[in-house]
Simulated assay, not measured.
Amino acid sequence: MTISVSHLKKYYQVHKKEPGFMGSIKSLVSRKYESVKAVDDISFDIAAGELVGFIGPNGAGKTTTLKCLSGLLWPTQGSVSVLGYTPFERKTAFLKQIALVMGQKNQLWWDLPAAETFLLNKEIYEIADDEYKKTRNELVDLLEVEHLLKIQVRKLSLGERMKMELIAALIHSPKVLFLDEPTIGLDVVMQKKMRDFIQEYNELKKSTILLTSHYMEDVRQLARRVIIIDHGKILYDGKLDQLVKKFAKHKVLSVVLETYVPPDKLKEVGELVEYNFPRAVIRVPRNASNVAAAQLLQKFPVDDLNIEEPDIEDIIRDVFTLSSKH
């Protein structure tokens, strides 16, 4: 396996200070600490060439896990292997084969054109001239940024800067790529361009990619497999389409009516989620969807009827809700 994580734990000791001046004085004499379990006993494997979505709410442990995998953090317990290396040993041979891109952090020199950072990274990673030119040209073509290479980074838009950040991170052709919120803050058009690039790059280079994102469209388009994490624990690890079958307890009936029907009548079929005549959306138990559909067709003036799966976002929200109750 390219990435292997076994019983990984990362705990922090956090100082708890009472408010006010007296609280500050007390903390000088006696400090109280509590243990925060950022990552709490998780295990998973990722094969070469896989693109895996790593999703969870804020504070779930996603970024902490990526930092452990890239060697920025030392695990409290457990073992981590990436490309056969132990990440926190930070060996040069390991660092030359990975890249970590964080949507809210940048490595580009602010007052210089991005091309200068590319050259700097070329020297840091000891890339041969021919290989550097080939890789740079490939990335520039894929992202369509040739006209931006000589412009100061601070004069670029957020989306343009993010493209340059990706080139800087990929200039050494890493075998493993950790992407932490790569589309954060981008408009919908730029988000799609970034997703298209990540997909093309994965297919072209056969690189292993672990992607975190709050935008479900990123995960839906890019990842066949997802790992869901919350409160430092893995809730689900498997195919995205199997997630629906495992956690969706209901189906959605989307109905178009020929004539108006009072909402109370439609509520007899199931939970009326939305009603804006002539369209109604009714949620029913998964195992009763066929019966509910037949009831609609027999008792109501139905012009059109579809039985649909709930949105992935709704299913994942339900997963997090169940997790928070335990």
Rank of each mutant, 00 (worst) to 15 (best):
residue 103 G to E: 06
residue 105 K to F: 01
residue 107 Q to F: 05
residue 107 Q to L: 07
residue 108 L to C: 06
residue 108 L to K: 01
residue 111 D to S: 12
residue 111 D to L: 07
residue 114 A to V: 10
residue 114 A to C: 12
residue 114 A to H: 06
residue 116 E to K: 13
residue 118 F to I: 00
residue 118 F to A: 08
residue 120 L to A: 11
residue 121 N to L: 11
residue 121 N to S: 02
residue 121 N to H: 14
residue 122 K to L: 05
residue 122 K to W: 08
residue 123 E to T: 14
residue 124 I to V: 15
residue 125 Y to D: 08
residue 128 A to Q: 14
residue 129 D to P: 15
residue 129 D to K: 13
residue 130 D to P: 01
residue 130 D to G: 11
residue 131 E to Q: 14
residue 133 K to G: 13
residue 134 K to R: 15
residue 137 N to W: 08
residue 138 E to P: 04
residue 138 E to T: 14
residue 139 L to M: 12
residue 140 V to C: 09
residue 142 L to F: 13
residue 143 L to Q: 05
residue 144 E to V: 12
residue 145 V to H: 09
residue 145 V to N: 05
residue 148 L to T: 03
residue 151 I to Q: 15
residue 154 R to Y: 12
residue 155 K to W: 06
residue 156 L to E: 09
residue 156 L to I: 07
residue 159 G to H: 04
residue 159 G to K: 02
residue 160 E to N: 07
residue 161 R to H: 08
residue 161 R to Y: 06
residue 163 K to P: 00
residue 166 L to Q: 01
residue 168 A to Q: 01
residue 169 A to K: 02
residue 170 L to H: 05
residue 177 L to R: 00
residue 178 F to S: 02
residue 179 L to C: 11
residue 181 E to S: 05
residue 182 P to I: 07
residue 182 P to E: 02
residue 182 P to A: 09
